[in-house]
Design a protein around this nucleic acid. Structure first.
Lengths: 200, 200
DNA sequence: GGACCGATTGACTGGTCAGTCAGCCAGCCC
DNA sequence: GGGCTGGCTGACTGACCAGTCAATCGGTCC
């Protein structure tokens, strides 16, 4: 037989279960027992792998947010136009939602927008994303691709806020979430922010 | 003497105290005793005027949100250009924050963005705001003031999301919040959404 | 076999609050 | 005065749950 029986990764199993339960019930109203049940694992095992219930969510957030930060930086380092860089960022976020809606729901609802709990804890990481987007805008202004009379930090907040609000709209069925809608959305955030609503 | 001694409105006193405490500690980590203490009132009196701790927050939200809905409708009914209507909406929200930052913080952080608790409860009212803004956009499109290739519901989410993210930025000191910054912000959200970032 | 060790189990505890309730008191009317 | 009303008080209770821990299991090595 193989040198090892495939060791089921219980830690991963717990994280995946937590995503599902958090997405369904929200962080505050899920008990640790719910996570354990969903993972098919004993209550105590959650505490074997994680210091606390909070740490489970922190881990989920950090795993995914570091990917986002990397994606933004990669877009920034590319040779593309500023507009294309923003398209790449919007695309990454929208695709993240398309492929893992539950995880993104948890991250947005429980961290990014949870200003009084995890949002505060992770403010530095979250802020890094705003800053990186702001840098893309500032560079765009420096090379004349974007108008110079808009504060980059401000534009960054608007851009990110618009995307996040769209995800919220999908999460709560406020706007349609078909496959084409995702692609439309990517193009449209960028259109709205770069071209504006008024005809040219 | 006057027919009545001025009856201190304890109910109002409790609501005002709740705003301060919720803004400072967040809804989840304020105990009912904190509200009572801040209001200088006995614990039990909170339950004399409100069915539950939740109801205190619900009341705060509904009071203010109905003003917002009224402001949006008024803007919509005016003879102004679509762009000016959006300016009026952005202006109302920004001014609300300027004059009552604590209340707006509570509403945004604890309701509007608290998707798993109060946000869900108040979804219908929140949605009404998105819909009304969407109507302004749709009318603008019908009269040729706005480009027709952007879904109004989508544009509405982007617009509102951008504003809310700015308030979040102020709330968390991510962007400067001087008096001029508020006025700049009003103009800039509208510029960004209507004109776009790219030069014309 | 048996010592050892990390993974796994789940009953139990300690602390925290939301909400209850029995009653106090100030003003008013008869 | 004495009774009534309703705003007001705050000690108390019941429920809930995160986190602990002592015990068990299963594999490995000698």
């Amino acid at each position: 037989m193989a040198s090892k029986a495939p060791p089921i990764d219980k830690r991963r199993q717990i994280l995946d279960a937590a995503v599902r339960v958090f997405a369904r019930q929200g962080f505050h109203s899920t008990r640790v027992a719910d996570i354990a049940d969903e993972a098919g694992v004993a209550y105590g095992l959650v505490y074997h792998y994680f210091k606390s219930k909070d740490e489970v969510l922190n881990e989920l957030f950090s795993e995914r947010w570091s990917l986002l930060l990397a994606a933004i930086d990669e877009a920034d380092r590319s040779e593309a136009t500023p507009r294309a860089k923003l398209e790449a960022v919007a695309g990454f976020i929208v695709d993240s939602y398309r492929h893992e809606p539950e995880l993104m729901k948890v991250i947005i609802v429980e961290v990014t927008r949870a200003a009084n709990s995890f949002g505060r804890t992770h403010l530095p990481e979250i802020r890094r994303a705003y800053d990186s987007i702001g840098k893309i805008v500032a560079d765009g202004q420096a090379q004349g691709a974007f108008r110079g009379d808009v504060d980059p930090a401000f534009a960054s907040m608007s851009f990110y806020g618009a995307i996040e609000q769209l995800l919220s709209g999908w999460i709560f069925d406020l706007i349609p979430a078909g496959d084409g809608d995702f692609d439309d959305a990517k193009a449209l955030v960028v259109t709205a922010i770069c071209d504006g609503l008024e005809p040219r």
